[in-house]
Structure formats: C-alpha cells, structure tokens
Design a protein around this nucleic acid. Structure first.
Length: 255
DNA sequence: TGAGTATGGAAAC
DNA sequence: TTTCCCTACTCAA
C-alpha cells in the first residue's frame, strides 16, 4: 500500500540502517546489476513523493519506485535466504532489506535525480516543501481538485486513499474546480499533519482518535453522517466522497 | 482454490 | 486504452 507516507517510513527506517555504512548488494532475481554497489558507503536514503533514493559515496544513486505491488521485507538476520524474485537485497551485518516487485529499480545519476526532483511538486512530508508553491500549484491546476492532488507534479506523495480522506477532511468535493488559495492552503495543512501521522503509524490515519477507520475511502456510508458515499472514476481511479460533507457548490466555503 | 480488485505509473498498443 | 510489475487481500465457490 505504498503511498507517500509509507515511502517516507521506508526511507527513515532504511536510512537508520544504512547511512554511514558499507553495504552488501545483490539481485537474487538478476534483473538489477547490484555489483557496482557492493561495499559502497551509503550517504543516505531519502523519499521524494513516492520515490526512494539511495545515495552512495562517489557513485550514482539507486532509484526505487514500488508502484502498486512493490514491497520491502526486512530480515533482522541478514543470513536469511531471500525469496525468489527479490529484485534487490541491501544488507549490513545487522539487517537485510529485500525489495520485491517494484515498478522501478534503477541506477540514477545526478542529472536524472535532478530531473526527477524537478518533475515533482512539493511533498507534504518533506521539511523543504514550500507551502506557497504548493498552494499556487494547486490553485493553478485547471481541472478538478481530485485530479490535481493525484498529479505528482502538483503535490508529490498523495495516492488514492489519501485523496479520498484529505478532501473529506477539507470539506472539498473532488469534482470542484477553482477551489481557490484558501481551500488549497487548508488542504495542504491537512495533508502535512495527517501524512506525518500516517508515516509514524504505518497506515493511513484520517482520524487520530480512530486510526483504523476511514471517513469515506472504500466505505458504503459516510462515517460522520451516514449518507451513502458517492463513488465514481476521477483521474483513472475510484473517487469516494460524501455528498453532504463535501458539497458540490460550497467546497470553498466549507469549515 | 480462484477471481477480482487495488494504495502507481509508465510503456506499449 | 491496455498491459505489466515473481503481490496481498477479500470474497465467493
């Protein structure tokens, strides 16, 4: 379930495990040439939106994108045999992380890394995110706000579950257009706060008082008011919204 | 046990 | 618009 909050969680965990250390690197599956990275010193592991970057001393980075099905397995005994199909194993003497079924795992030089960063909008989980840029990009988007937040060039790291819950929390109809700077700022603040909770908890947290519950995502009825949740396709993914709590006309006035 | 679906995204048609 | 990622979960049979 890899939206941005989980990618940041992986980055933090693996940064702690690898930063400042030399790693063993292998691709049991054979689809990634890991040999150049064996014995290399890891400078750091970071997340940018849904992308992971492993930075090495004196060499290109590794770029990983989990896609929809990718996952990491952690082994506190690094002697554990990797499962077949492991794209990449990075290990120290203490721990191994195995990468399974990513949509991307590739070597990436400095110019490509810069291009990747430039292609992405502000990431609510990064300390260097610029709120003003985030508000301007969302407000400037021509199209429904529910498409804007999934566009990684507008904001980076939001996926379909967060789209549903964040727009609910901001009282915005996903179909609303031209929501304005005020609503954009409110939505950004909701994203910053809740994605951080989600990163720390390891799951989508849209109600801190009930971290396992959702307001509308994959629900039949709104958890707040009981109204039937509306579902439709928006930007090639299923949108979920409460017609009462996310009114079509009053989105910019809500709250 | 098998089918359908999914929290992404880009390449292939 | 469809397809592919050595996936996981849920539900039906």
């Amino acid at each position: 379930m890899p939206e941005g909050h989980l990618i940041h969680r992986h980055a933090r965990e693996q940064h702690r495990a690898f930063a400042g250390r030399r790693v063993r690197a292998a691709s049991p599956q054979g689809r990634f040439d890991a040999r150049p990275y064996g014995g290399r010193l890891v400078e750091g592991v970071e997340a940018v939106g849904k992308h992971l970057l492993y930075h090495f001393d004196g060499g290109p980075a590794i770029h990983v994108h989990l896609g929809m099905r990718g996952l990491f397995l952690r082994y506190d005994d690094p002697a554990t045999q990797p499962r077949r199909g492991t794209r990449l194993r990075l290990a120290t003497d203490e721990v191994a992380f195995d990468l399974i079924a990513p949509s991307r795992c590739e070597t990436m030089g400095g110019e490509q890394v810069a291009a990747l960063r430039a292609s992405l909008g502000p990431d609510p989980l990064r300390g260097d995110a610029d709120r003003g840029v985030a508000v301007r990009r969302l407000a400037a988007f021509t199209g429904p706000v529910g498409a804007a937040v999934l566009d990684q060039g507008v904001w980076a790291g939001i996926g379909n579950a967060w789209r549903a819950e964040l727009l609910f929390l901001a009282g915005l109809d996903p179909d609303a257009r031209d929501v304005g700077a005020e609503a954009a700022g409110r939505l950004w603040d909701v994203a910053v706060r809740h994605l951080a909770l989600g990163r720390d908890a390891g799951q989508v947290v849209s109600d801190p008082a009930a971290p396992d519950e959702r307001w509308v995502y994959k629900r039949e009825t709104c958890r707040r008011c009981g109204t039937a949740v509306r579902t439709w396709t928006l930007a090639a993914r299923t949108a979920y919204a409460c017609p009462l709590d996310q009114p079509a006309e009053l989105g910019r006035l809500a709250r």
